[in-house]
Amino acid sequence: MSFLTVENIVKDFGGLVANNNISFAIEEGEIIGLIGPNGAGKTTLFNCIVGYHRPDSGKVTFREKDITGFKPFETNRAGIGRTFQIMKVTTGMTVLENVMVGSFCRTNDRNTARGEALHVLGDLALDAVKDYYINELPIAIQRKVGLARALATKPALLMLDEVASGLNPTEIEEVVELLRRLNSAKKITLFLIEHIMEMVMKVSQRVIVLDYGEKIAEGLPADIVKNENVIKAYLGEKYAQGL
Protein backbone atom coordinates (compact mmCIF):
# COMPACT_ATOMS: atom_id res chain seq x y z
CA MET A 1 0.00 0.00 0.00
CA SER A 2 1.32 3.41 -0.89
CA PHE A 3 1.58 6.39 1.39
CA LEU A 4 -1.23 8.25 -0.36
CA THR A 5 -3.41 6.44 -2.85
CA VAL A 6 -6.00 8.19 -4.97
CA GLU A 7 -8.34 5.90 -6.86
CA ASN A 8 -10.79 6.92 -9.56
CA ILE A 9 -11.69 10.31 -8.16
CA VAL A 10 -14.64 11.94 -9.92
CA LYS A 11 -15.86 15.43 -9.10
CA ASP A 12 -18.63 16.96 -11.12
CA PHE A 13 -19.81 20.54 -10.52
CA GLY A 14 -23.27 20.33 -12.05
CA GLY A 15 -22.21 19.23 -15.51
CA LEU A 16 -18.70 20.62 -15.37
CA VAL A 17 -16.45 17.64 -14.73
CA ALA A 18 -13.50 19.03 -12.81
CA ASN A 19 -11.92 15.67 -12.02
CA ASN A 20 -12.62 12.64 -14.15
CA ASN A 21 -11.50 9.28 -12.88
CA ILE A 22 -8.12 10.30 -11.56
CA SER A 23 -5.85 7.74 -9.95
CA PHE A 24 -2.29 7.88 -8.73
CA ALA A 25 -0.16 7.00 -5.76
CA ILE A 26 2.52 8.77 -3.78
CA GLU A 27 5.22 7.05 -1.80
CA GLU A 28 6.56 8.25 1.49
CA GLY A 29 9.36 10.78 1.17
CA GLU A 30 8.65 11.74 -2.43
CA ILE A 31 8.30 15.18 -3.93
CA ILE A 32 5.50 15.12 -6.49
CA GLY A 33 4.51 17.94 -8.80
CA LEU A 34 0.99 18.40 -10.10
CA ILE A 35 0.76 20.52 -13.22
CA GLY A 36 -1.77 21.42 -15.86
CA PRO A 37 -3.22 24.46 -17.61
CA ASN A 38 -5.63 26.78 -15.87
CA GLY A 39 -8.90 25.06 -15.11
CA ALA A 40 -7.39 21.60 -15.44
CA GLY A 41 -8.79 20.62 -12.03
CA LYS A 42 -5.62 20.75 -9.95
CA THR A 43 -7.02 22.69 -7.03
CA THR A 44 -10.22 20.66 -7.17
CA LEU A 45 -8.17 17.50 -6.87
CA PHE A 46 -6.36 18.97 -3.87
CA ASN A 47 -9.66 19.89 -2.32
CA CYS A 48 -11.04 16.40 -2.89
CA ILE A 49 -8.08 14.85 -1.12
CA VAL A 50 -8.01 17.31 1.75
CA GLY A 51 -11.78 17.34 2.18
CA TYR A 52 -13.01 20.76 1.08
CA HIS A 53 -14.92 18.89 -1.61
CA ARG A 54 -16.43 15.49 -1.30
CA PRO A 55 -15.64 13.47 -4.41
CA ASP A 56 -18.68 12.11 -6.23
CA SER A 57 -16.96 8.77 -6.39
CA GLY A 58 -13.54 7.33 -5.83
CA LYS A 59 -11.40 6.64 -2.86
CA VAL A 60 -8.54 8.34 -1.05
CA THR A 61 -6.32 6.30 1.23
CA PHE A 62 -3.65 7.84 3.43
CA ARG A 63 -1.30 5.70 5.46
CA GLU A 64 -3.63 2.76 5.07
CA LYS A 65 -6.61 4.65 6.29
CA ASP A 66 -9.61 5.43 4.13
CA ILE A 67 -9.97 9.22 4.33
CA THR A 68 -12.52 9.68 1.57
CA GLY A 69 -15.09 12.27 2.62
CA PHE A 70 -13.11 13.33 5.68
CA LYS A 71 -13.52 16.97 6.63
CA PRO A 72 -10.45 19.19 6.22
CA PHE A 73 -9.75 19.25 9.94
CA GLU A 74 -9.90 15.48 10.05
CA THR A 75 -7.45 15.05 7.19
CA ASN A 76 -5.19 17.54 8.92
CA ARG A 77 -5.32 15.55 12.11
CA ALA A 78 -4.57 12.44 10.08
CA GLY A 79 -1.34 14.12 9.01
CA ILE A 80 -2.01 16.10 5.83
CA GLY A 81 -1.12 19.78 5.84
CA ARG A 82 -1.86 22.21 3.06
CA THR A 83 -1.21 25.77 2.03
CA PHE A 84 -3.43 27.98 -0.08
CA GLN A 85 -2.73 29.63 -3.36
CA ILE A 86 -4.34 32.82 -2.16
CA MET A 87 -3.66 33.55 1.46
CA LYS A 88 -6.36 35.65 2.95
CA VAL A 89 -4.74 38.85 4.07
CA THR A 90 -5.95 39.22 7.60
CA THR A 91 -5.43 41.82 10.22
CA GLY A 92 -6.55 39.94 13.29
CA MET A 93 -3.52 37.91 14.31
CA THR A 94 0.24 38.29 14.27
CA VAL A 95 2.54 35.90 12.47
CA LEU A 96 3.45 34.17 15.71
CA GLU A 97 -0.19 33.78 16.69
CA ASN A 98 -0.98 32.36 13.27
CA VAL A 99 1.68 29.74 13.60
CA MET A 100 0.66 29.01 17.17
CA VAL A 101 -2.80 28.07 15.92
CA GLY A 102 -1.05 25.46 13.84
CA SER A 103 0.86 24.14 16.86
CA PHE A 104 -2.31 24.03 18.92
CA CYS A 105 -3.40 21.27 16.59
CA ARG A 106 -1.08 18.90 18.47
CA THR A 107 -1.10 20.33 21.99
CA ASN A 108 -3.39 22.01 24.46
CA ASP A 109 -0.72 23.88 26.32
CA ARG A 110 -0.03 27.45 25.35
CA ASN A 111 3.64 27.48 26.26
CA THR A 112 4.31 24.32 24.31
CA ALA A 113 2.44 25.76 21.35
CA ARG A 114 4.40 28.97 21.57
CA GLY A 115 7.71 27.18 21.83
CA GLU A 116 6.96 25.04 18.82
CA ALA A 117 5.71 27.97 16.80
CA LEU A 118 8.90 29.89 17.55
CA HIS A 119 10.91 26.87 16.53
CA VAL A 120 9.15 26.63 13.17
CA LEU A 121 9.51 30.35 12.61
CA GLY A 122 13.22 30.13 13.38
CA ASP A 123 13.55 27.24 10.98
CA LEU A 124 12.05 29.30 8.17
CA ALA A 125 14.00 32.41 9.13
CA LEU A 126 10.84 34.28 10.04
CA ASP A 127 11.79 35.33 13.60
CA ALA A 128 12.16 38.92 12.57
CA VAL A 129 8.55 39.28 11.48
CA LYS A 130 6.86 37.30 14.24
CA ASP A 131 5.04 40.29 15.69
CA TYR A 132 3.79 41.67 12.38
CA TYR A 133 0.29 41.27 11.08
CA ILE A 134 -0.08 39.39 7.81
CA ASN A 135 -1.32 42.45 5.93
CA GLU A 136 1.88 44.29 6.76
CA LEU A 137 4.11 41.76 4.98
CA PRO A 138 5.24 41.36 1.37
CA ILE A 139 3.72 38.47 -0.52
CA ALA A 140 6.80 36.25 -0.41
CA ILE A 141 6.80 36.40 3.37
CA GLN A 142 3.04 35.86 3.53
CA ARG A 143 3.52 32.63 1.58
CA LYS A 144 6.19 31.52 4.00
CA VAL A 145 3.90 32.26 6.93
CA GLY A 146 1.27 30.06 5.31
CA LEU A 147 3.88 27.36 5.00
CA ALA A 148 5.01 27.80 8.60
CA ARG A 149 1.41 27.57 9.80
CA ALA A 150 0.91 24.29 7.97
CA LEU A 151 4.26 22.94 9.16
CA ALA A 152 3.37 23.68 12.74
CA THR A 153 0.62 21.07 12.54
CA LYS A 154 3.41 18.53 11.95
CA PRO A 155 2.15 17.00 8.74
CA ALA A 156 3.57 13.85 7.22
CA LEU A 157 2.29 14.96 3.83
CA LEU A 158 2.34 18.61 2.88
CA MET A 159 0.26 19.79 -0.06
CA LEU A 160 1.33 23.13 -1.48
CA ASP A 161 -0.89 25.12 -3.79
CA GLU A 162 1.34 27.37 -5.91
CA VAL A 163 3.80 28.44 -3.24
CA ALA A 164 5.98 30.17 -5.81
CA SER A 165 3.51 32.23 -7.81
CA GLY A 166 4.15 35.93 -7.65
CA LEU A 167 7.67 35.49 -6.39
CA ASN A 168 10.82 36.72 -8.12
CA PRO A 169 13.57 34.31 -9.26
CA THR A 170 15.69 34.76 -6.15
CA GLU A 171 12.73 34.11 -3.92
CA ILE A 172 11.81 31.05 -5.98
CA GLU A 173 15.33 29.77 -5.54
CA GLU A 174 14.93 30.15 -1.80
CA VAL A 175 11.65 28.28 -1.76
CA VAL A 176 13.14 25.43 -3.76
CA GLU A 177 15.95 25.14 -1.26
CA LEU A 178 13.51 25.25 1.59
CA LEU A 179 11.31 22.53 0.14
CA ARG A 180 14.25 20.26 -0.46
CA ARG A 181 15.41 20.80 3.07
CA LEU A 182 11.99 20.03 4.51
CA ASN A 183 11.86 16.89 2.44
CA SER A 184 15.29 15.60 3.34
CA ALA A 185 15.71 16.80 6.89
CA LYS A 186 12.16 16.51 8.20
CA LYS A 187 11.09 13.59 6.03
CA ILE A 188 7.98 15.37 4.89
CA THR A 189 6.40 14.11 1.71
CA LEU A 190 5.60 17.01 -0.60
CA PHE A 191 2.83 17.27 -3.16
CA LEU A 192 2.77 20.55 -5.00
CA ILE A 193 0.67 22.32 -7.56
CA GLU A 194 2.81 24.64 -9.52
CA HIS A 195 2.55 26.91 -12.47
CA ILE A 196 6.17 27.86 -12.72
CA MET A 197 7.57 25.13 -14.89
CA GLU A 198 11.23 25.68 -14.07
CA MET A 199 10.47 25.19 -10.43
CA VAL A 200 8.38 22.03 -10.74
CA MET A 201 10.89 20.43 -12.99
CA LYS A 202 13.72 21.32 -10.68
CA VAL A 203 12.22 20.21 -7.40
CA SER A 204 9.90 17.30 -8.25
CA GLN A 205 10.98 13.74 -8.45
CA ARG A 206 7.84 12.81 -10.30
CA VAL A 207 5.20 14.87 -12.10
CA ILE A 208 1.50 14.28 -12.68
CA VAL A 209 -0.21 16.23 -15.45
CA LEU A 210 -3.91 17.09 -15.61
CA ASP A 211 -5.82 18.51 -18.52
CA TYR A 212 -9.58 19.13 -18.65
CA GLY A 213 -10.02 17.12 -15.49
CA GLU A 214 -8.19 14.03 -16.77
CA LYS A 215 -4.79 12.71 -15.91
CA ILE A 216 -2.88 12.77 -19.17
CA ALA A 217 0.59 11.87 -18.03
CA GLU A 218 2.70 10.82 -15.08
CA GLY A 219 6.42 10.30 -14.90
CA LEU A 220 9.86 11.72 -14.37
CA PRO A 221 10.25 15.41 -15.14
CA ALA A 222 12.65 14.65 -17.96
CA ASP A 223 10.07 12.36 -19.59
CA ILE A 224 7.17 14.70 -19.00
CA VAL A 225 8.72 17.54 -20.92
CA LYS A 226 9.08 15.23 -23.89
CA ASN A 227 5.56 13.82 -23.67
CA GLU A 228 3.60 14.86 -26.72
CA ASN A 229 0.25 15.12 -24.97
CA VAL A 230 1.70 17.30 -22.31
CA ILE A 231 3.40 19.60 -24.76
CA LYS A 232 0.17 19.96 -26.68
CA ALA A 233 -1.99 20.51 -23.63
CA TYR A 234 0.07 22.68 -21.46
CA LEU A 235 3.63 23.45 -22.13
CA GLY A 236 2.61 25.04 -25.38
CA GLU A 237 4.87 26.31 -28.06
CA LYS A 238 6.92 28.51 -25.82
CA TYR A 239 8.42 25.78 -23.68
CA ALA A 240 8.56 23.29 -26.53
CA GLN A 241 10.64 25.72 -28.55
CA GLY A 242 12.95 26.15 -25.65
CA LEU A 243 13.79 22.45 -25.63
Binding site: V50, F73, E97, A150
Partner: peptide
Amino acid sequence: RKSKLGYQLRMIKDDENAAESLGIDI
Protein backbone atom coordinates in the same frame (compact mmCIF):
# COMPACT_ATOMS: atom_id res chain seq x y z
CA ARG B 1 -8.24 34.97 25.17
CA LYS B 2 -4.94 33.19 25.69
CA SER B 3 -6.37 29.68 25.59
CA LYS B 4 -6.33 27.23 22.73
CA LEU B 5 -9.99 27.86 22.05
CA GLY B 6 -9.39 31.62 22.02
CA TYR B 7 -6.67 31.30 19.41
CA GLN B 8 -8.71 28.91 17.33
CA LEU B 9 -11.72 31.20 17.36
CA ARG B 10 -9.67 34.14 16.21
CA MET B 11 -8.36 32.03 13.37
CA ILE B 12 -11.91 31.04 12.45
CA LYS B 13 -12.88 34.69 12.40
CA ASP B 14 -9.94 35.59 10.18
CA ASP B 15 -10.14 32.76 7.71
CA GLU B 16 -12.37 29.72 8.08
CA ASN B 17 -10.79 27.74 5.28
CA ALA B 18 -7.33 28.15 6.71
CA ALA B 19 -8.62 27.30 10.17
CA GLU B 20 -10.01 24.02 8.89
CA SER B 21 -6.72 23.19 7.23
CA LEU B 22 -5.03 23.62 10.62
CA GLY B 23 -7.03 20.85 12.21
CA ILE B 24 -9.70 23.01 13.77
CA ASP B 25 -13.19 21.57 13.97
CA ILE B 26 -14.89 24.87 13.23
